[in-house]
Structure formats: C-alpha cells, structure tokens
C-alpha cells in the first residue's frame, strides 16, 4: 500500500507563501489552481461518477475557495485539505438538492489496495464483487472515510479536518470498517470452506 501523501515542512512553507500571495492578489491563485485541480476533480468524480458533474462541482469548489480565501487560516494541514473540505460540502449539497442516492465510483485497481490491508496475496478479481457488496452494507459515512484514506491517501488529521470531525473519530471509523471487512471475508471463507 502506498504511504499517505504528506507535504514536508519546506513544501508547506512554500504552499503557505503561495496562499498569502493569492490572498493579497487573486491573480496569483493560478498556482494553487494548477496544483490541485486534478486532485479535486478526481475526488469529485469518485463521488459523482459523472464527468460533467465532477467538472461543474470542481469549478464551484475553486470559485468558493477564491471567494473565501481571505478567511483561510493555516491549521496544521495542507491547503489542499481546505479545498477538499469545500469540495466535500459541495458534493453533499449536490446530492441534498437533487435528493439523489449517494454514489461512490471507485477504481478497481484501488480496491485491491484496501484488500491488501487484509491480506496481501489472498485476493483475486472475483473478490471485487464481494468487496462491492461489503461497501454497500457499510454506512455511507464509513465509505467516505475509507475513500479519503485509501483512494485520496489522506492522513487521519487531514480527513478529520475535511469532514469536520475529531481525529480519534476518524481512526475509529477506519478501524471499525476494516474490522467489519475482516469479519465479512472470514464469514465468506467459512461458507466456502
């Protein structure tokens, strides 16, 4: 499994300099836009499953970020966490407005990474369908946390900031979900055996 993406101190300092520069003149926002566009788009695509919707929500996210940039304060997490928090709120508002069922559109290759936490060599292609069943049974809030942890490769602190919950709460949700996953596949093993 890949290590969660973290910026080192030097990178955070540079990023904060970019933010300060954009706060004093919005024309300098382009560097942040270029750096995070793809990440935010991918996140919103995973949460909507429709390219056009993801593009629209990405625009909304960056527009909101620009409008509220003067309110941004560094809180020990990268600037991207602030963008992801806006994006998460945007996608939730999208589903609330349309009263649609939440969608998680996940890449097959990334699902293997979650399975690797359980057992590195055990899983094959047929287990993906089982994994989908398992994820459907989980509460959406837990899938959201797993998605941020394993697909976006965010640290616990960042996830807590994005979802506006406590760090221990996030750890608990990931732990609980992985425990359920283990139990789910154990049950399956017993049935097959």
């Amino acid at each position: 499994m890949k290590k969660p993406f973290h910026l080192d101190e030097q990178q955070i300092l540079i990023e904060q300099e970019w933010v300060r520069s954009a706060q004093s003149d919005s024309r300098h926002f382009s560097r942040l836009y270029d750096r995070y566009f793809e990440g935010i788009f991918n996140f919103l695509y995973r949460r909507s499953g429709i390219e056009e919707v993801a593009a629209d929500l990405t625009s909304q996210t960056f527009l909101k970020a620009l409008q509220n940039l003067h309110k941004y304060k560094y809180k020990g997490v990268p600037f991207s966490a602030w963008l992801f928090r806006i994006a998460a709120n945007e996608v939730n508002a999208y589903y609330r407005k349309r009263q649609k069922r939440l969608v998680f559109s996940l890449e097959e290759s990334m699902l293997y990474e979650i399975l690797e936490v359980y057992d590195e060599d055990y899983f094959g292609e047929e287990d993906i369908n089982q994994m989908v069943l398992f994820l459907k049974e989980l509460p959406a809030e837990d899938v959201e946390v797993l998605e941020l942890r394993f697909f976006e490769e965010k640290g616990f602190k960042e996830i807590a900031y994005i979802l506006e919950v406590s760090e221990s709460g996030v750890k608990m949700r990931v732990y609980r979900a992985l425990k359920k996953l283990r139990r789910f596949f154990n049950k399956k093993d017993k049935k097959e055996g």
């Binding site: 788009f41 593009a55 069922r101 559109s105 996940l106 097959e108």
Partner: peptide, 22 residues
Amino acid sequence: MTKHDIRIRRNKLSSRKIQSFK
C-alpha cells in the same frame, strides 16, 4: 444511515482528459 451506490470503474480518467476541463 445514508443510502449509497458503489460503482466500479476499470480505468482511471486520464490526466489529459481532466486537464481539458480546466
């Protein structure tokens, strides 16, 4: 508990495709 659907995609969107939305 919020209801949700899980969809599986075989491929990631290409960077080029994403950049076209910029």
